[in-house]
């Protein structure tokens, strides 16, 4: 806002340039306005820099505190070691179980949550009568606002015993329980972002399809969805981000044991590995937890890059 003004000022010399008949009072008020604009601009810049500063701070801190343990343990041993025994006499710090659990858990949540969320979005954006849409949209918003500890609690009380009795396993606290909880948790992001993408599809495309004799359903899936695919991809990536970063709910339903992932076994995620040991950790164990956080952070950065890529593409489309 203020930069063009600065330029304008520099062109007109207040003494010689400009016009002699300019009333000085107007000139004064311009100076005041400009000073104010510059001030506001500075405030905005400062506020923007706070965010950037936080990101930088976290990044630097994570790298500095995450590197030592990796150095001591060895990158390969740390990332691909299958055993995590941080408090044993000869401690072992292999985080492959956590990495795989996070990947499997997220993939499972996506496999379960995306079809449901995506089809819900298509229905709400294109087919639902206004009243139904209002009710379902409200429900989705509520779902988005429920704290993760509540998801965990309900999962513990309903899902875990349910899995135990349905699949006849000794303990229902398992990867499967975590997947189901995560699938529900990512639904709102997937539904909302997909709806936005689908509603942005120009009506003309759909009209053209209908005028060719396609049914509404054919139109949604062969015209609207392909036209919105970048936005829908962004929705999926956003879901991945939420799922991989979730700690509280999965800790409550996954049993929190550092096993290699298996559907009906207790497992531990990258997030829960950090959260569950941090309070009593010390020494190398503590440093290793920071390293886990660093790995998680790198995952998130990767996902964010993918998200930006898809969002940019969907804007261009």
């Amino acid at each position: 806002m203020c930069l063009p003004m600065k330029k304008r000022q520099s062109k007109i010399d207040p003494v010689t340039g400009g016009s002699d008949i300019r009333p000085p009072v107007l000139w004064d008020s311009l100076m005041k306005k400009q000073a104010f604009e510059n001030f506001i601009y500075g405030v905005f810049l400062l506020l923007g820099l706070i965010t950037v500063g936080c990101v930088l701070l976290i990044t630097v801190y994570l790298i500095i505190s995450g590197i030592p343990a990796i150095r001591e343990i060895g990158l390969f041993k740390f990332l691909f070691g299958k055993t995590w025994a941080s408090t044993a006499k000869t401690p072992q710090f292999g985080i492959l179980p956590f990495i795989l659990t996070s990947i499997y858990g997220t993939a499972g949540a996506i496999a379960l949550g995306v079809p449901i969320g995506f089809l819900t979005a298509v229905y709400l954006a294109k087919a639902a009568p206004p009243k139904v849409k209002a009710v379902v949209s409200a429900a989705v918003s509520v779902l988005a606002g429920i704290p993760s500890v509540v998801y965990g609690l309900v999962g513990m009380l309903v899902l875990v015993p349910g899995i135990r009795s349905i699949f006849h396993v000794p303990d229902g606290a398992s990867l499967l329980a975590a997947i189901v909880v995560l699938a529900v948790m990512i639904l709102p992001s997937i539904v909302n972002v997909s709806i936005t993408a689908l509603e942005a599809v120009p009506q003309e495309y759909e009209d053209a399809s209908l005028a060719l004799g396609a049914t509404p359903t054919e139109t949604y899936f062969r015209v609207s969805v392909p036209a919105a695919r970048s936005g829908i991809a962004a929705a999926v990536v956003l879901g991945v981000g939420r799922a991989i970063g979730e700690a509280m709910a999965v800790m409550m339903v996954s049993g929190n044991v550092a096993n290699m992932p298996s559907l009906f076994q207790s497992v531990r995620f990258l997030t829960t590995a950090v959260a569950s040991e941090m309070s009593y950790s010390s020494g190398l164990q503590r440093q290793a937890l920071f390293s886990i956080a660093l790995v998680l952070y790198l995952f998130i950065l990767l996902i964010n890059a993918a998200l930006n890529f898809f969002l940019k593409r969907s804007k261009e489309a």
């Binding site: 120009p202 009209d207 399809s209 004799g213 062969r222 036209a227």
Partner: peptide, 27 residues
């Protein structure tokens, strides 16, 4: 749908689908 197949329509604003020329025609 059969009626609209028989009575085609061209709109005010050109509205090709965001796909290839071929796929537009083959749609």
């Amino acid at each position: 749908n059969m009626l609209r197949k028989d009575i085609g329509m061209v709109f005010q604003k050109p509205n090709p689908f965001p796909m290839s020329v071929y796929d537009n025609i083959a749609y």
